[in-house]
Simulated scan of single mutants.
Amino acid sequence: MSFIKNYLERQICERRQFLLLSAYGLGGMAVSSALKTKTARAAVQNPKIAWSYRDRTNPYWNSIVAGGDAFVRSLGRPSDSLINLINEGSSEKSLADIKSLLSRYGSQVALAADPNDMPNCRPVVEAVCSAGAYISTIWNKTDDLHPWDFGDNYVSHMTWSDVGPSEQTARVLFDAMGGKGGVVHLGGIASNNPAIERLQGLKNALKSYPNIELLAVQAADWDTQKANQVMSGFLTRYGDAVKGVHCASDTMAYGVIEALRAEAIEGMPIVSYDGNPQAVGLVAQGKLLATVFTNPYWGGGITAALAYYAATGVFKPSSEPKEHREFYGPATLVTTKDASEFKSKYIDSNPEYDWKSLWSFTSGPIKYKS
Rank of each mutant, 00 (worst) to 15 (best):
V125Y: 01
G313Q: 11
I265M: 14
L202W: 11
A262T: 10
G151D: 02
K322A: 12
G233L: 13
S32Y: 10
V128S: 01
P47Y: 01
L333K: 14
A227F: 05
G179S: 07
P351G: 08
K99Q: 15
L75S: 07
I83E: 00
A66K: 08
K207D: 14
L111N: 05
M29W: 10
I138C: 10
V109Q: 02
G364R: 15
D149Y: 02
L282K: 08
S161M: 10
S32M: 10
S103N: 14
Q108E: 14
K287G: 03
L306D: 01
Y346N: 13
W139K: 12
I196A: 11
A219V: 00
G181K: 09
L333G: 05
A34F: 07
L202E: 09
A339P: 00
K5L: 10
S249C: 15
H324V: 06
S130P: 02
A331Y: 10
Q168W: 08
M252N: 07
A216I: 07
K93P: 00
K337T: 14
P210G: 06
T224A: 02
C121H: 09
Q17G: 00
I265F: 13
G76Q: 03
K180H: 12
M268I: 14
S33V: 04
A23D: 14
G164P: 06
D223N: 13
G364L: 09
W355Y: 10
V245G: 13
I83A: 03
L85M: 14
T362L: 04
G179V: 02
S344Y: 03
G27Y: 11
K180L: 05
A127N: 05
S249I: 01
L101G: 05
G106Q: 04
G178N: 07
L19F: 10
M177P: 13
E326R: 12
F361C: 13
P115E: 12
W61M: 02
A284V: 09
G301W: 05
E263P: 00
R77Q: 14
Q11D: 01
M268Y: 13
F361V: 10
V72I: 06
